[in-house]
Design a protein around this nucleic acid. Structure first.
Length: 307
DNA sequence: ATGTGGACCATAGTTACTTCA
DNA sequence: AGTGAAGTAACTATGGTCCAC
């Protein structure tokens, strides 16, 4: 069995070598995924990756990253949930984009910043620290309003990543800082992946249960057959065993040529094509067991969504 | 052509705060 | 009112890609 998890867990493929055409493709990404994103991407969210949005908003030049001056210290008294003033909005969306400097919270951030004060200023502003709270090291969490969340969700449906221009535009629209928008998208991606992982786990669990059940059934059958083999009298009274076989072309189960009522346990190979017996004997083929067959999971719907 | 450093971005994991039962 | 769980904003660490040099 090969389990392959593609594209960040949003596409799950399970294949059983002995079961042809039984590959399961799980694709649970939101249907909003643009079908126009063709090329595979190393990004686990490749289904979302770089849609026309990004193309229409080419990434702004990275040279716009400039060191922030101490004039930003006024942010210490700004409520992050308030709508930005005109000047502030300009600042937010401006070319220099001071906040985008901090937008990347990578380990290299400190290298890019002019000094630690700027970082602290940003942190303070991100916490919405008021005058009396200034200096408190604990971070205050803001709660995004419902409207803000709705807009962010809608934006995420369109594209789960943002380029700098998108980030700025969205931040301006929502009255948030670009960093907040960025963090929201990061967390949103993480939540999406987590949920997808849970779905995948549930699916694998069901698959395992089905396989276990089938294994149990087969073991029981083997035991019964062995028991029959050990009791000659009973064995001799049995009707000639037959085997359930399937026509490779029409996938129908063939019936024995003698056509008695099929016994429960069978092992012969002589078969006749179910459609017409003039076709003569065919190569027997074991009926494939499909562990997914008894699963109530709506795979068809998934396939439809992924296509 | 290749190596290197900087900038940027992504994810994983964690922390701290808020909300709610 | 107090409390634990769940949700989530914000953070850190790390690694990958791109690009200029």
């Amino acid at each position: 069995m090969m389990v392959e998890k593609e594209d960040l867990g949003l596409s799950l493929s399970l294949r059983f070598p002995e079961i042809r055409n039984s590959s399961l493709q799980l694709n649970l990404m939101p249907s909003l995924v643009s079908s126009s994103s063709p090329s595979p991407s190393p990004s686990p969210f490749n289904l979302f990756h770089k849609t026309s949005w990004n193309e229409s908003f080419p990434s702004s030049d990275r040279n716009s990253e400039t060191c922030r001056g101490e004039t930003r210290s006024f942010l210490k008294v700004i409520d992050v949930n308030r709508l930005p003033s005109t000047a502030d909005a300009e600042d937010e969306a401006g070319v220099s984009s001071p906040n985008s400097t901090i937008s990347s919270s990578s380990g290299k951030r400190s290298e890019r910043e002019c000094n630690g004060d700027d970082h602290e200023i940003e942190r303070a502003s991100s916490r919405g620290i008021s005058d009396e709270e200034d200096g408190d090291a604990s971070r205050k969490k803001l709660r995004l309003s419902k409207d803000q969340s709705v807009v962010l969700e809608e934006s995420f449906k369109e594209h789960n990543t943002l380029n700098p221009k998108q980030k700025l535009a969205l931040a301006k629209r929502l009255g948030l800082r670009p960093r907040q928008v960025e963090v929201w998208f990061q967390n949103r991606r993480a939540r999406t992946k987590l949920k997808q992982t849970e779905v995948d786990c549930e699916l694998l669990k069901r698959c395992c249960e089905n396989l276990t059940e089938e294994n149990r059934r087969l073991q029981k059958e083997v035991q019964e057959l062995r028991a029959l083999k050990l009791s000659p009298q009973f064995y001799m009274q049995m009707t000639p065993p037959t085997t359930l076989t399937m026509c490779p072309s029409c996938e129908r189960v063939a019936v024995p040529s003698s056509a008695p009522p099929p016994p429960t346990t069978t092992t012969t190979t002589t078969t006749v094509h179910p459609r017409s017996r003039q076709m003569g004997p065919i190569h027997p083929r074991s009926v494939p067991f499909n562990p997914w067959a008894t699963t109530a999971f709506p795979f068809d719907a998934l396939h439809r969504r992924s296509s």
